[in-house]
Design a binder for these strands. Sequence first.
RNA 1: GCCCACGUAGCUCAGUCGGUAGAGCACUUCCUUGGUAAGGAAGAGGUCACCGGUUCGAAUCCGGUCGUGGGCUCCA
Length: 644
Amino acid sequence: MKKLAEITLSTADQRKSFPVGISAAEVLKEMFSNKVRKRTLALRVGGVLIDLSAPLTTGGELVAITPESPEALDLLRHSAAHVMAEAVLDLFGHDIQVAIGPATADGFYYDFDRNQSFTPEDLEKIETRMERIASADRPFGREEVARTTALEFFCQQGQRYKVELLEEIATDRVSLYRQGSFVDLCRGPHLPSTGWIKAIKLTRLAGAYWRGDEKKPMLQRIYGTAFFDKKELRDYLNQLEEAKKRDHRKLGRELELFTIQDQIGPGLILWQPKGSLLRWIIEDYWRREHYRHGYELLSTPHIARRELWSKSGHLDFYAENMFSAMDVEDVRYQLKPMNCPFHLAIYQTRKRSYRELPLRWCELGTVYRFEKTGALHGLMRVRGFTQDDAHIFCRPDQLEAEIYRILDFNLQILQAFGFVDYDIYLSTRPEKYVGSDAHWERATEALKVALAQKGLPYTVDPGEGVFYGPKIDIKIKDVLGRAWQCSTIQVDFNLPERFNLGYTGEDGAEYQPIMIHRALMGSLERFLGVLIEHYAGAFPVWLAPVQARICNITDAQLSYAAKLYEDLRRAGVRVEQDIRNEKLNYKIRVAQMQKIPYMLIVGDQEMASDTVTVRRRDGKNLAPMPVDEFVALVMVEKGRKTTI
RNA sequence: GCCCACGUAGCUCAGUCGGUAGAGCACUUCCUUGGUAAGGAAGAGGUCACCGGUUCGAAUCCGGUCGUGGGCUCCA
């Protein structure tokens, strides 16, 4: 019987039993050194985080959470969110409704409902008040109460968001946290006291719907971040500054890659010569690789009769993302938001045999989708973009192999562009779906098998699949840590059905092929946006729109520079010449800021010896070399797809 | 679409209390012909996003529209 009343805790160097309900503080004293104890924020017992003030009811592996622990920042920031709520209520009155205030990847936020808007000046005031609360070092107190008691309490306080949350909680007992005058419904855990919060910065003010639902009230969200010391905060803010320098919108303007203009319209990209060249290089690579991997290229129009889109079902399930129809001689036409119906139409041009499957059809197809103005963002979210689309029509027995092939190809492409870090998601059957359960299971299994075969770790997103089939998404992270979906592989049971696709099997009977939609880069626009940030505009030689720039020293070398320019262009080097009447220093500075990989310096010496002196983007000078040697060097770099 | 902030020359930004607009870079011309991150001078360039209101007078104050940024939502 004694066993039931005891729990056993173990650390790397000891193992002890304690009576059930013993306080964390007590355990800390028994199990850890004084030094560790002083720095402990919370405990982890058998994988569960608990406050130092909480009683222990289960045993297991015991870990002291100190500021160095991976969980510590979350703990700190979640506590900082509570402190912010206290500061806001202190400063602006208790009639403010508080909603939720979690820690996020790089900070925390709290949502408030208040008639008046917060101003940037308010943020400063709040920050100051938070610092005061922090330095007062008030303890975070945890209380467990009956849910009904908590309900009564928050009703009385007039905190209707808390009431709403409580009404949905299934358990009988809930926990409350109190620091100073502020009491919040919260699962915890929290820091022992506010004093641990040494560096706070409120970063921005934003609107956010209650529970992310457009139909629910708009709350005011205050974002902030917090650290255990001021230096870490400074480093973080510096890092943000650095990230800003890589912003593709800024670099796009500076490097003359693309422009977005009011007179053209929001979300519509105009590619300037250098940006177009970059696109062309990527597209060229893409086409060659697709041919190599057994794909055939298609080209389809931008508009089609509206009936096509009702046949495909897009008007039923995608209408809100489609631009309105246009009339062409009394017939309604529709700008395409997707390429698939056209590819299906091509499939249907004749009867298909099992022998010719799989058909792998790809297209760099430009589509137009209506996006709310607030969602638009540089190249990352636009209204007109080119998808590197493909549709694979295959027999059921080919499904797994095809998915594996796509995945393999996909990773090769991403790798060529220097992307080796990404998150992979497998989305399974949603609530509303078409197709039989057996189909779904088979397809989901095929996706899983392919992922396993490639040895790729992934996260399952239950119920997040499209209604027509399960999918794999690959998300790439930009410099600010925002994840952008690029690659997607989707199995589709719907369209083959709607278009009544068929092929004749070995036995002469008619069968329905399975369709796979896939995009590797996703949208060329977005991919280029991520790419610009990824390389900070300093593209590797194989991608750089300008690989080399000739800089003459005086007018005496003008004709030599002109000859070099001709020779290099003919040899396939993307070269420019800066033959302005400027000093070398100036020309180097300009070329450097344009992040051109090679500067070719030509003076009297080079002219006399028929050579060029190569200055690399990283500042290093190579010994003077004949032009042929430089061409060879560029060709090697191009082939390697490396940076210099 | 919604919340907050913002919109002055191609770019980055000044512009006080309401009195009709300024700098640096870039651009053009001239001088300078120089060896690894800005040589000098002059010139040109603006319906102060757009529309309306207040005022003797609006870049400035107010309202609306459009656009941008940060979020929410959605997605490639």
